[in-house]
């Protein structure tokens, strides 16, 4: 395992290496060399299986972190490649030539976060949503409760409780649902 990381460190500018558990490591790499690193991992290091691509929204830092999870069946090791991209210029190199299912993930990320992957096929086709006219829903600034109330309305004579708040009120009525 360590040899692999050393090799990678020699050739690439990887940092934040984090051994989460035996059999799983994450590392961070700059946006520009990410595609080369992933290609290298796939072709030379045996990380032939792409588990998934996903994105984490760190709105407070103004970045999206893309996560490419790769798996090596021979060494039974999973490697998470993290790539930070700017939230304002959300664009990333497409890896649809490396795995056949990659373009589906990229299409999903395009719809859910608005990240652009130039060259990825069928990128702007609807994936889950149809006729969506708001900001991409998985972005953290999108408030799904408010949107749902506005768009879908409530049934008269009923109201929805936020279950957590309701439970606290039941348990600590004197303190107005206060926890302490």
């Amino acid at each position: 395992m360590n040899e692999l990381l050393e090799r990678l460190q020699r050739h690439f500018d990887v940092n934040n290496i984090n051994v989460l558990k035996p059999g799983m490591t994450t590392l961070k790499i700059g946006k520009d060399s990410a595609e080369i690193l992933i290609r290298e991992l796939r072709d030379r290091e045996g990380y032939t299986h792409l588990n998934f691509i996903t994105c984490i929204d760190y709105i407070e830092d103004g970045i999206f972190t893309l996560v490419y999870m790769l798996h090596n069946y021979d060494s039974k090791h999973t490697l998470g490649v993290h790539v930070d991209i700017d939230r304002e210029h959300e664009e990333m190199t497409s890896i649809h030539t490396l795995w056949a299912q990659a373009w589906t993930y990229q299409r999903e990320l395009r719809e859910m976060y608005g990240i652009n992957f130039p060259g990825s096929p069928r990128l702007d086709e609807d994936f889950c949503l149809e006729g969506w006219d708001q900001i991409p829903p998985m972005r953290r600034e999108f408030d799904t409760r408010v949107f749902s109330e506005e768009r879908f309305g409530h049934r008269e004579g009923r109201h929805s409780e936020v279950p957590r708040v309701h439970m606290k009120m039941e348990l600590y009525p004197k303190r107005g649902g206060d926890e302490e």
Binding site: Q134, R145, G153
Partner: peptide, 19 residues
């Protein structure tokens, strides 16, 4: 379909179906 159930706050499911 009655009031949204556990998806009462979801952005993609309707809350009151008989509308």
């Amino acid at each position: 379909p009655i009031n949204g159930g556990m998806y009462f706050d979801s952005y993609n499911t309707v809350n009151r179906f008989d509308q």
